[in-house]
Design a protein around this nucleic acid. Structure first.
Lengths: 300, 300
DNA sequence: TGGTGTACATAGCAAAATTGTATGGGATGA
DNA sequence: TCATCCCATACAATTTTGCTATGTACACCA
C-alpha cells in the first residue's frame, strides 16, 4: 500500500550491484530477507522490476524507470528533512508582511528587509500593502505573519503581540495653487470652509474615527467632498486640486507633484505604528524581524 | 532511518485535519498509534513538526515546510509506480538507436520514428549516428538498444538478434569537373591511376576490408591519398576535388555540391543493412520498432 | 553427460516494529 | 470545581521484518 523508504533503498542497492547476494552483504542483512522485500516492492509497484538470471539480476525496462524514480524519492526524502530542520532554525522560510501602504517604501522597512536578506538569503518575503483596517484582520486570520499597522491599544491577553515602531505625526496636505497654500491656516478651525478629502471609513475605521474626533475637538467639522480608498488616491485627489487632506508626515517621501505639506499648530495627532503578530505564531523569523526593525525596545 | 510512506500519509492527514483524533478516525487506526507514529516521524526529521495545543495540533514552520515536501513525496511515489507500469506496457519509455551516419535521414527510418511517436507519444528516442564499427559494439555494451548497421553474418547463438532492413549498393562518387566525370570509367580497373579517398579502417574495419577485397578481386589497387572519418567527410574531400570514392547509393539524398554518382559495372558490392539488438534486451519497445521498420519479414 | 558452484526462492522460527486497549494529564469552558 | 476534550503513556496483541536452513534453476567444466 505505502512506499517504504527502506525497500526503495534495498531496491536501489540491488540494482546498483546487480546481485541480491552482494546487496545483502552491503546492507548487512541476509539474502532471503532481501529476496522477500524485493518481491513485496514488485507487488506494490505492480510489475516485475528485475530479471533474475543465473548470474544475478538485471533491471527490466520498468525497473529502469522505477530505479530513476526511487533514487530521486530517496534524495527528496532526505532533502525534505534537511529543509524542515533549516526552516526550524530560521535559515530558510517565508515571512508574510502586511504594511500600511504609506510605509511600503519607508527607509526603515527597506533597510530591515535588506539586512534580513543579507543575513539569511534563504528567506522569502511577501509584502502586502493595505490600509490599517484590513491589515490587522489578516494577521488574526493567519494570512500574513506580521504587520506594520495602527492597532490601537492591545489587550495583554489578546492573541496579538506588538512592539512600537514609529510614531507618525499628521500634516495638512494642500495644493500649491490653492488659497491654503498662499495663506496657511494656523488652526484646524480655519479649515471649516475648505473642501476636505478623506479615505473611506470602511478602509480603516479606527483611524478615521480618531481623526474625525480630533477635528471635532478643535472646532473643525470637515466638509468632506471626496473620498479615496487609499492614502495615495486621496493625495491624488489633492494633486488634482479637489481639496485638502491630512496625511502622515511619512508621506513626504512620496508626494504627487503640486502637493505640499503644511503644519497646523493644533493638528497634533500622533499615530503610533506598531509591528504586530500573533503570539501563537511560532515562526522563528518573527523575533529576528522585530529586532531588526525595532531594535531592542521593550514590547508594548 | 528511512522515510516511511505510511508515516508521511499519517502526518499529512493529521496536518489536514488539525487533530490526531479526527485523523485516527479517518485513517481507521487508534489515536495512540498515530501519536506514536507522529513522534517517530518528528524524531527522524529532527525537529517538531506540530504544535500540540488543547484544541488540536497546528503546523510549526518546519512542519509547513515538511508538509509540502511530504505531499510531493507521496504523489511522486504513486507516479513512480504508475510510470513503471506504463513502461512495462511499452506506453512510455526510451529507445536508444544507433544508426549508420549515412542513413540518419533515410526516409524509411524517419517514417518509422514518426509512426512510433504517433502511436506512443510517451516514447523518447536517442539517435546516435556513427560508423558501423562502433555501432555494433555499443549495442553489445548496452549503451544503445538497437542499431541499423552492417553486422556481417551473425551466429545464431550469439547475443545479437537481427532482421534485414535494406541492401544498399555502392556507387562511385566523383567531382563534376574531374576527368572521371567526363570519361566515366567502365570497370573498377580503370580507377588504378586515380586518386582515391576512403574512410579510416578503424572506423569500420569490416566494411573497409570488404571493399578493399572487392577492389583487389576486380584488379583495382586504389591509391588512397586521403582518409576521412565518416562518409560525409569523405564526400567533402571529393567535393574539394581531392579524389574519388565509393559510397552507398543511399548517399544520393545528401551529396555535397559538385559531386555526382557514377555506376561502375563491376562495382556490385551489396551491403545488407540489418536492424540489430541484444536478444536479452527485454524492452517491449524493440519488437514494435522492428515491425515498424522491417514489416513482418522473418528474422535473419 | 553428470558434477559442481553460484545465485535466487521458499519455509519456519525469532526479533522488531506497529497497532489496539486502557489510562493519565493538561487545558478549556460551564 | 467539574465535565469535557485532546494528546501522551503503558502494556498487551498483532503484523512485519529478518535469520537460518534448505530447495531449485542455471551456467560452467570435466
Amino acid at each position: 500500500m505505502y512506499t517504504n523508504g527502506r525497500r526503495l533503498h534495498y531496491f536501489v542497492t540491488i540494482a546498483d550491484l546487480g546481485s541480491l547476494g552482494r546487496a545483502a552483504q552491503t546492507l548487512h542483512i541476509a539474502q532471503p530477507a532481501l529476496s522477500r522485500q524485493l518481491r513485496l516492492l514488485e507487488e506494490s509497484v505492480g510489475v516485475p522490476l528485475l530479471d533474475r538470471n543465473a548470474r544475478g539480476v538485471t533491471l527490466t525496462p520498468a525497473g529502469h524507470s522505477y530505479y530513476a524514480s526511487a533514487r530521486r524519492l530517496l534524495d527528496d526524502a532526505v532533502l525534505a528533512s534537511a529543509r524542515a530542520v533549516r526552516t526550524a532554525r530560521g535559515e530558510v522560510g517565508h515571512l508574510g508582511l502586511g504594511i500600511l501602504e504609506i510605509y511600503a517604501w519607508h527607509e526603515s522597512v527597506l533597510r530591515a528587509l535588506q539586512t534580513y536578506r543579507q543575513q539569511s538569503p534563504g528567506i522569502t518575503f511577501t509584502i502586502e500593502a493595505m490600509l490599517s483596517g484590513a491589515v490587522t484582520q489578516r494577521v488574526l486570520d493567519g494570512h500574513i505573519d506580521m504587520a506594520l499597522a495602527y492597532t490601537g491599544p492591545l489587550a495583554d491577553d489578546g492573541p496579538l503581540a506588538a512592539v512600537p515602531w514609529i510614531e507618525d505625526t499628521y500634516l495638512l496636505a494642500v495644493h500649491e495653487d490653492s488659497g491654503l497654500s498662499r495663506r496657511p491656516p494656523r488652526r484646524l478651525a480655519d479649515l471649516n470652509d475648505e473642501d476636505f478629502i478623506l479615505f473611506r471609513r470602511d478602509r480603516s475605521p479606527r483611524l478615521h474615527d480618531l481623526l474625525i474626533h480630533h477635528f471635532h475637538q478643535h472646532g473643525l467639522t470637515p466638509r468632506i467632498v471626496q473620498e479615496g480608498t487609499t492614502h495615495y488616491t486621496v493625495l491624488g485627489l489633492v494633486a488634482a486640486g479637489l481639496g485638502c487632506t491630512v496625511t502622515p508626515a511619512s508621506a513626504k517621501r512620496r508626494l504627487p507633484p503640486g502637493v505640499k505639506l503644511v503644519a497646523v499648530s493644533d493638528l497634533d495627532v500622533r499615530m503610533p505604528i506598531n509591528l504586530v503578530w500573533r503570539k501563537d505564531n511560532p515562526s522563528p523569523l518573527i523575533p529576528r524581524f522585530v529586532d531588526l526593525l525595532c531594535g531592542d525596545r521593550p514590547p508594548a
